[in-house]
């Protein structure tokens, strides 16, 4: 229940939202970090294979998905701003739009997976595809988890459970959702672009 009013420019002792979610976020960052580094070193042993296989990825859908997640993340910033002003319904609407963009992300990603799976590509095709599929699938699960968290918060916001004095829940969900975005911001250039 600390840091409820963050409209001033003061420095806060703890990050926005429940501190417990931040431990979870750091653990998640560590998990993805290990995976990213493993990718980079596996590539170093197999540069040609990685560069060749990367050519077959749909870079456009990856880029659009980045834009989608960043915008969705921005909507959550607006949702937090709305609840700080006491606008519960407006807050719920911003969260709903963030979730809506989450669905757009999932749809684009599923189209991408469909394309790859129907081309007969699987985890065992080669090391590059193993990483591409497992990294994006693992991230995909996190998008779903994030959307579930946001949905729960949206319902509470709609019921008027949050107020300018008590909105830790909204910040907690927003922090997790920003993390999902943050990870994709690294994942996209790493797997789709850098060669």
């Amino acid at each position: 229940m600390i840091n409820n009013t963050r409209t001033s420019h003061e420095i806060h002792a703890t990050p926005p939202g429940d501190l417990a979610i931040w431990f979870f976020i750091f653990a998640e960052l560590l998990a993805f970090g290990v995976f990213f580094v493993a990718y980079a070193f596996a590539r170093a042993h197999n540069v040609e294979l990685f560069n060749e296989s990367q050519q077959h990825l749909n870079r456009l859908s990856g880029a659009i998905n980045t834009l989608v997640l960043i915008t969705s993340s921005y909507f959550m910033v607006r949702a937090v701003a709305a609840i700080k002003q006491g606008y519960s319904i407006l807050c719920a609407r911003w969260i709903a739009s963030a979730i809506g963009l989450g669905f757009v992300f999932l749809a684009i990603k599923m189209a991408e997976f469909h394309e790859k799976f129907s081309a007969g590509i699987s985890l065992s095709t080669n090391t590059f595809y193993m990483f591409y599929l497992s990294l994006t699938l693992f991230h995909f699960m996190h998008v779903i988890l994030g959307m579930v968290i946001l949905a729960a918060i949206m319902l509470k916001a709609r019921n008027g459970s949050y107020s300018p004095a008590n909105h830790t829940g909204v910040e907690t969900g927003a922090s997790y959702w920003h993390m999902v975005d943050l990870l994709w911001i690294i994942l996209f250039p790493l797997v789709y672009v850098i060669r």
Binding site: T14, P16, V77
Partner: peptide, 13 residues
């Protein structure tokens, strides 16, 4: 940018 602005870490310790 995401961490400091969106997540609001620039206003924390």
């Amino acid at each position: 940018m995401v961490a400091n602005y969106f997540m609001g870490l620039r206003r924390t310790r």
